[in-house]
Amino acid sequence: MSHAVSTHNAVAPIKGVYRHLDCIVEGIAALKKAGFRPNMTVLSPFPRHELEDLMYEGEPSPVRWFTLVGGLFGATMAFSLASITHANWPMILPGGKPVVSIPAFTVITFEGTILWGSLLTFVAMMIFSGLPARNLPKAVEDPRFSNDCFGIVLQGLSAADAARARSILHHSGAIEVSGGEEGGHHGA
């Protein structure tokens, strides 16, 4: 059963460092059960489906909508560019071939679809991932998280919740637990 987490008088962010995948999986599950999901950031040097599944429970990324919209926009724009250009500047029409030709403009339309689909996918990834990242808490800036360790950072906890969270991190097998001192602030 989950508990409500108080963010009143938040302490400094808490960081748990893990070496073992099964330990961090256990830690995330326990913290979620204790109601800490909104306060958690999980860090890993590479993607692991176990971690994503635990954190997001199969909810797909909204990036896909941007890909779709980008593709549709690109297709429309490219076909329109070719069609309007030829309609405004009609060339000699040998053999009565059409001014707006679907087969001839298919290549341009295809390229527009791929180009804009990709560009909007990139933009969406940057926006949703918060890149370029500037406002992340200092606690996530640990070189071990790009090397050989996993991590959990908890922010915005009250002193009582911080003690509970630290205990869960310890019990799940974190090799190091730091932070949680009183007088901390958001984004420290």
């Binding site: 950031t41 860090l43 990324s61 990834m125 949703f128 996530v140």
Partner: peptide
């Protein structure tokens, strides 16, 4: 500024 957060890896 990549840090390998769950949010970053997901998207």
């Amino acid at each position: 500024g990549w840090r390998g957060t769950d949010q970053q890896w997901r998207h």
